[in-house]
Amino acid sequence: MDDVIERLRAADDRSSPPHVFDLDTGLRLARVRARRRRVIQGAVGVSTVAAAVAVAAGMVWPDDPSDSAAADNPKPEQLLEAFTWEQKPQDELPDAYVGEASTPGADELVESSSRLVAQGRHVDYWTALDEAGNICLVLYMPEHGTGAQECRPPAAFAVEGVTAELADAEGDGSREQNSEAWLIPDGYDVDAISADRWALMMPNLAVRVPDIEPTEVLSVLAEPQRPEDRMPTLPDGREITRSIVDSTSRLVYRAEDVQVWAGLRTQEETRGQPEICVVVYMSHDSWATANSCATTGLVWDSGLEFGLEAGGHEFHGWLLPDGFELRPDETQEWTVVAPNLAVREPE
């Protein structure tokens, strides 16, 4: 081990930055940040400040049982399981939200309360408490550096959750520039959310998706079914899956040991919204199969990633909607192998 460390130390000695770090500017920015923070805190009422100090110092939820007003409010952790999770590094809010409110006049978010509830291809979604004890939904689009947040008091959140919308004013309404999300309390009747184009992305998060037909997302679904589009029976005689309507399956990729189909999920298994499924069948020394489904609008937005690991082999695929272009950074990891499929090499 000493030899390894010796080489590491030598490599460390050879590591020198190509430019000077401007510490003076760094300190100046930190001071500006601190002043802005004080201004925001000073604008909040005295009683709220007292609560905020308690929250910030003790990292406790702002609902003292002795407070009669708070007694009417359910605790945040009773409304969202995410608040019971231990905070992990990925739960931390982007820097734009730390130490100040992104919305002028809004309360500052409590850093220790933030939890990442979902990640989309373009947008990350957090929940957090603000210093007034409201439950917030935070959206952030890292590629554009833009974000949005909305907060509701716990009592109101318990009834209807909270929605937030992120839209680029100069955007063209494409996938990359808009997101409308709905943070849903635990126990909410999720069967009711499919109305008005909401689609459940995670147990507590729905996103607004376009009203779009599966054949507009995958034109191959509109083509006549060929013999090879029909999924074969497994070697043990069973069907590969019963989740897909037989007549809708279409072969989208075939390699020596792997076949991938797309199709529509049977109606009785959906919540009123058509779902696109992808099925993978892998046959090496033995065989294995898996399927994954998502609401059509979600597939239009982000495609559908899936994976299968069995017998020492693995296959990771990404079903791509028509006209879907991978970003340059994504093409480093994914290879488009068919009009509607990209694959990733095992790590």
């Binding site: 931390e92 990640q119 291809r121």
Partner: peptide, 16 residues
């Protein structure tokens, strides 16, 4: 460390 680790866990994080 938290910033670095957090970023690499995000699907959009494809830094060279």
């Amino acid at each position: 460390a938290r910033v670095a680790i957090s970023e690499t866990r995000r699907p959009w994080w494809r830094r060279e």
